[in-house]
Structure formats: structure tokens, C-alpha cells
Design a protein around this nucleic acid. Sequence first.
DNA 1: CGCTCAAGTGTCACAAGTGTCATATTTATG
DNA 2: CATAAATATGACACTTGTGACACTTGAGCG
Lengths: 192, 192
Amino acid sequence: MKTLTTGDIAKMCDVNLRTVIRWIDRGALKGFKLPGRGNNRVRVEDFVSFLQEHDMPLPAELAGENNRRVLIIDDEAAVARSIARILRSAGYETEAAMDGFQGGSMLVKFQPALVTLDLRMPGISGYDVLKFIRSTPETAHIKVVVLSALDQQALQRALDEGADAVLSKPFDNQALTDVVERLLPVATTELA
Amino acid sequence: MKTLTTGDIAKMCDVNLRTVIRWIDRGALKGFKLPGRGNNRVRVEDFVSFLQEHDMPLPAELAGENNRRVLIIDDEAAVARSIARILRSAGYETEAAMDGFQGGSMLVKFQPALVTLDLRMPGISGYDVLKFIRSTPETAHIKVVVLSALDQQALQRALDEGADAVLSKPFDNQALTDVVERLLPVATTELA
DNA sequence: CGCTCAAGTGTCACAAGTGTCATATTTATG
DNA sequence: CATAAATATGACACTTGTGACACTTGAGCG
């Protein structure tokens, strides 16, 4: 989602919708109006700079959009280390989870912008993890890259279930960083 | 994100609103200002750490929420429902996690006061979960009740690894509520 | 013990921001 | 197309920030 409604902002700031509209009318928060009745929309970057300007905390929902954190869910330590090395050298902050339980807790605690997910892990299906991420509002926005040595059909199913990208193992270092950088555009506020 | 106004805090601490504002201005209590006239808002977590730092009692409004939540980690839906029914009727708020991933994420998101943990789940060892809970600062305080059909030796090992109580399956309804109530004393505002 | 001082807190009135409510309209959903 | 959900608006009530001043508390000291 590129823009926010007044309701979105009201929820994130724990403030009444009426108040958000007043901020916009007063010019404190930059926004624009839809042609219809003048419903307000605010670009995420404008909202973020608004928050920074007033020393207001960044809501968790947006923290996930503007960060470079990647969570690696893979039960093979060697693979996880390898992925971590590649992504760290590309400037990402990484954490690894070796089992489903760690994965779930890190997902909520670490609030990554992207998750690399091994489809086949002992005891837990990668599809279930994917479904969980997509069906939970707090995590639905997180990008998911599925890594697997399984066949094309399995990868297609992952895409159908909401994966943003798939990579078949073994994969090229460059391919991994390409995919991650495509999914995490540097959408920072480049203005002074 | 839940926030508090100066008025909320004033009522909870039984002080004047003016005083709360001074705490914030002085930096003793972390907060931020709304863009309008600079009305103050304080995040609940910041307020709680402020209270702890000054050895002030936790208001009932905040304590009550944190005290009666139980997370049920069990892959057998029937067992989970059964436990939920028993604990709900005893006045607890429950959530169930059917696999390790859900368990980990609910642990962080739901922030339960107590976890019932099945030792034997497909793909993930209950001991690992226990170790994770105990070794993570944010969750180390959470009470853990291990439920298992395994032998006495397995239960003893769970106790050794930090479980607060163990129950061998099948267990008596009353036994479960007894254990939970022993671990979650009704810590209402007993302070003057 | 009484005094003084300093620091923190409560009180008051006013101005300004924010929440609530009902309602009309728009947008989303199926 | 029809229905449900979300949004804008105005009026009004409530809450909050501010400054000035009085009050309380605790410590230090003669």
C-alpha cells in the first residue's frame, strides 16, 4: 500500500480520526484529497517524515517497511550462515532461526522486512508458515522469499500461497541479492 | 500501539495532571507530543518501565491485563480445546498454538503470563521451547507448565530445564486449574 | 525544637487541542 | 447492482498545556 487513509493513521497514532483530518487541514501533515468528496490520502513517506519531525514513535507496521532486516528461517546452520553472509555483505541486518518456534518468535520480535523461508523443515511445513504470515495482519506485509530444493511444482504452490519470490536451491549469490533488493526498494526519504 | 494521556497517568498514579507533565518535561518519563498544541502521549511500555524504575506499584488497569493470559501449545486440537475450556471456565484468557511457529509468534504477541507446553510435538522438542523461553529475557519470567504422557524421567528433565510445574497426561481438570492458580496468584493491588 | 530554604506538588483560570455523536456521502466488497 | 464498511463534517463536550502562585515535604542548621 502506497498511501494511508485517515483511519489508518488514526489507528497507528492511537488518535481520533477527526484529529488526523485536523492535522491535514492545518497543514501539519501533508496529504492530498481524492476527487470525490475530498477523502484524504497521505503518502507513507510524508507520514514518516511527519512523525520524525514531531519526535513521534514509528508504528510497528511501518517499521517493517522502512528497514533492512532479514530473518532467515532454515534448520541447516550451514545454509543459514551462508545466506546471512551474503545478505550482510549486501548491507542487510540478519537474524537466523533454526526451528519453527524460534522463527515465530523472531518474526514478531525482530520485525523483519523480509523473510527467507526453507520449505522443508523437520516437523513444520513451510506452507503453514507462509499461510500464517499472510493471514496475520501484523506480518502480512512482510516479504517472503522461499528457498527450496524441491521441484518446480512445489515452488509454484509457494507462489500461489503468497510467496513474493522463490529460489531453487542451490542458488547463485547474486540471484539472492537481486531478489531481495527487488523486494526491498530503498524507499527512504532522500530529502534533507 | 497503545498510548496514555497525561490524564490517564495522573489518575493511575493519583497525582495531578500538572505533575505528570513536569515528569515528562524533566525527562523522567519518556513521552512524545502531538503536533497540535503539544499534547503529551506516553507509550504503555515506557510508562511501565518508568514505574518499575521508581518502584511504583503497577496500576490495576495495567496489571489486570497481564495476569490471566494462558498460551496453550499443543499440536492435538482436541487436547488444546479441552485445556482451553477448563482454563476459560476458571476465568483465564486463552490462546492455542498448534505448531512451533505459531507458538513462538503467539508467545511474543500474546504475551501470556503462563504457557502450557506439550513436550512431544512433531518436529520440535518441548525442551528446546523451554530452553528458548528461559534464555530469552523478554520471556524468561513466563510460567511454564509442561504436560506430557512421557515417563517420570522426562518430566523431571523438564523441571530441571526450568519448567515451573509438570502434569502427566491424562490429568485431572482440577489438577490443572490448581497448578495454574498456584503459579498465577491473584496479584491485585494489595498496596496502599 | 523551631527556623529557613529548596524542591516538588496542587490549585486555578483560560486558551486551545482532542474526543464524541449523528448524519450524509464515498469507497470497498461480493 | 446492492450492501457493508469507511470517511468527512459540524456542533458540542471534554481534556489538556500553561503560567502564576500557594501548599507540602524533607533536609540542614542554630
